[in-house]
Amino acid sequence: MTDLPHTDFTQRFIFDDSDARGELVSLELSYAEVLAKHAYPEPVAQLLGELMAAAALLVGTMKFDGLLILQARSEGPIPLLMIECSSERDIRGLARYEAELIAPDASLSDLMPNGVLALTVDPTEGQRYQGIVDLHGKTLSECFTNYFVMSQQVGTKFWLNADGKRARGMLLQQLPADRIKDEDDRAESWRHTIALADTLKAEELLGLDNETILHRLYHEEEVRLFDAQSLRFHCSCSRERSGNALVSLGLHDAQNLAAEHGGKVEIDCQFCNQRYLFDAADIAQLFAGAGVDTPSGTRH
């Protein structure tokens, strides 16, 4: 097996004698990059890390070219958690929150009451897909497990943990009947696989390497661990995209917006805090179809 790619990667594994597969994820640098963009309270940082881990696990198990978007919305102190992860394994995320309403020991239901979880796959080619379920569960792990039970009808279970420094996750999923044909034996094998995984403590998932985790859980099983696949934090914002957003307003509204703000329009990326500035000359250039390759200025 090749050396692990730094600190941010997913790693697939498969059971040779039963119809199940799994995926493990570790995120450190990309998680730190997301948290560095905003002063998130600890409970927000934890949920954001868990959602990042879930997105990475899903991209690791899905075959598509494009973008996976996870959004958790609610009517509570955290109205929005959002993660985007591309098939190129670039990941970014953000949260909206009201710090004064967040208690340190708040549960998921306290932080995100009446919440919904939306999973969107936006392929480079083909039709956009979205699935939505209620945020029913004590943890995000339970919510994702429920999503697959309700929308995919595929035996799937998630374990997600984050502590502000590292985000980790594990996914187990049933495969079509192959090794085990008998329905009762197949169901019992799946229950056994899940029961062993449920003995994994949060501190073990956060602190142990993948080989140790799998040996700890399945030392009596034949498990193959595949090469790791790296991920990285990367924001897809650009001056060009920001300019396109201005163009979508129309020339008159874009000019008025600049006039109202001292002659310049500021467009901030919510994910990475990059700021793009457009003055009257930039706006005229945009609407003349000349683009914005020579900006008057950008700054963070």
Rank of each mutant, 00 (worst) to 15 (best):
V265K: 04
Y129I: 10
C237Y: 11
L111K: 01
E50F: 02
G76Q: 00
E240G: 13
L217W: 02
E33P: 02
E50K: 05
G291A: 10
G93K: 07
I132G: 07
P176H: 09
E100Q: 14
R12V: 12
P123N: 01
M112Y: 03
L48E: 08
R21M: 13
L80H: 09
V25I: 13
K181A: 15
W190E: 00
S86V: 03
T212S: 12
A53C: 05
L175P: 09
E260A: 14
V265N: 05
G291C: 08
L94M: 12
D185F: 03
T120K: 06
S189M: 09
F278E: 00
T61P: 15
D268W: 03
G164L: 11
Q173S: 12
S296V: 12
R224P: 02
D19P: 14
V116K: 04
R73I: 04
Q274A: 10
K264S: 12
A45S: 07
L135D: 14
V59W: 00
I267Q: 06
I213N: 00
V44K: 06
C269P: 07
E88P: 06
R224W: 07
D90N: 15
I267S: 08
K138N: 14
L205I: 12
T294N: 09
L47I: 04
D279M: 01
A290G: 12
E100P: 11
G207Y: 08
K157N: 08
L4R: 10
D8P: 15
A284M: 12
L58I: 10
P123C: 01
C235H: 07
I283Q: 00
G169S: 08
R232M: 04
A254G: 10
E50A: 03
G207A: 11
P123H: 01
S236V: 08
R168P: 05
Y31W: 06
N161F: 14
A118G: 10
S87F: 04
N114E: 03
A39W: 04
R241F: 08
S74K: 00
T145Y: 12
E33L: 07
L108T: 03
T199P: 14
S248T: 13
L108H: 04
E222V: 15
D209I: 15
L67V: 08
K157C: 12
E88G: 11
H219F: 11
A103I: 10
E183Q: 11
N273W: 03
G263W: 05
E222W: 13
D182F: 08
A259F: 13
R191E: 09
Q285N: 04
L47K: 06
L27D: 14
R21Y: 08
A20K: 13
S86K: 05
S189G: 04
T156W: 03
A228W: 14
I267K: 12
S236C: 08
Q130G: 06
D19L: 15
P113F: 01
V25P: 08
Q173G: 09
L208K: 07
N161E: 15
W190A: 00
A45L: 05
Q229L: 15
A197V: 05
E100N: 14
K201C: 09
C235N: 07
A45Y: 01
A280W: 02
A187C: 06
S107C: 13
A36I: 00
F287E: 08
A245F: 07
V121M: 06
V247E: 06
L111T: 00
L251G: 07
A53K: 04
C85Y: 11
L70M: 13
P113E: 04
L196Q: 09
L101N: 10
I267P: 05
L257I: 14
A167K: 12
A254L: 07
L208S: 08
